[in-house]
């Protein structure tokens, strides 16, 4: 057990054997762990998305995943950053579309899921998927009731040409909200609040003009599926 101070030189073969053996052992353990936990992790991620989906498309019971492809929508099999989720009520009517948005927050990127309601042309809810904002400060963007109220009906109408938003979504200083497309920042967490506005504006500006002409198809697609 005790290593003598003056050891005869270890042959290279022995060193290689030990290193190789340890590497094999660790490889085996890691692969085993990855295999064992993979279904659990996938389940967790699916669960997290589903939990967020019911919040951002209130009332929806069934969801379908889509992806925007050249000139239309295609059902998406895998989850990705560009995945769209269409939420339907029990009668199969389209209630809303959810998509991901992201922006640089205070500490790191903030990843959001937001729900868009085509009937009112407004955003109906946001959920933070991932962030590293400071607990008790920046992380209030996912808990603060007054802040979340901003997104119960956030104006995201398209301009007459249908190519861009009528009013860009912006975050304004706490207490300065005057218009339905403005987000009232949390005082003390302005940077995180702004990041949310930026993420929404950037994503909505691109997504909504693209999705609007296609909405009819998802409504119909759903009916065809039934």
């Amino acid at each position: 057990m005790n290593i003598p101070a003056l050891q005869p030189r270890t042959p290279t073969a022995a060193m290689l054997a030990v290193l190789g053996g340890v590497a094999m052992l660790s490889g085996l353990l890691v692969v085993l762990a990855a295999q064992l936990t993979a279904p659990l992790i996938a389940e967790n991620q699916r669960h997290a998305i589903e939990r967020a989906l019911v919040r951002v498309i209130p009332g929806a019971v069934t969801f379908r995943r889509y992806r925007i492809v050249e000139g239309g929508l295609a059902p998406a099999r895998k989850e990705g950053d560009d995945t769209l989720y269409a939420g339907y009520d029990a009668q199969g009517r389209l209630l809303g579309i959810a998509a991901r948005a992201a922006a640089q927050g205070y500490a790191d990127m903030i990843y959001l899921l937001y729900g868009y309601d085509p009937r009112c042309q407004c955003i109906r809810g946001i959920q933070v998927l991932k962030m590293a904002e400071t607990p008790g400060l920046g992380d209030r963007i996912m808990k603060d009731h007054a802040f979340l109220k901003n997104f119960e009906s956030l104006d995201a109408r398209l301009d007459p040409s249908g190519e861009s938003l009528l009013n860009p979504i912006v975050t304004v200083k706490h207490g300065a909200k005057r218009n339905p497309w403005e987000i009232d920042a949390i005082s003390g967490a302005t940077i995180s609040s702004r990041a949310v506005g930026k993420a929404l504006n950037r994503s909505a500006r691109k997504l909504l003009p693209a999705i609007h002409p296609l909405l009819q198809r998802i409504r119909r697609l759903r009916e065809a599926q039934r």
């Binding site: 590497a23 660790s26 353990l29 890691v30 762990a33 992790i41 967790n44 991620q45």
Partner: peptide, 20 residues
């Protein structure tokens, strides 16, 4: 270091499986 890295990878996966 290899041994330590192995166990860290294990716990990394475990935490991911327990709570996202």
């Amino acid at each position: 270091i290899v041994i330590i890295a192995t166990f860290v990878t294990l716990i990394d996966y475990a935490i991911q499986a327990i709570s996202l």
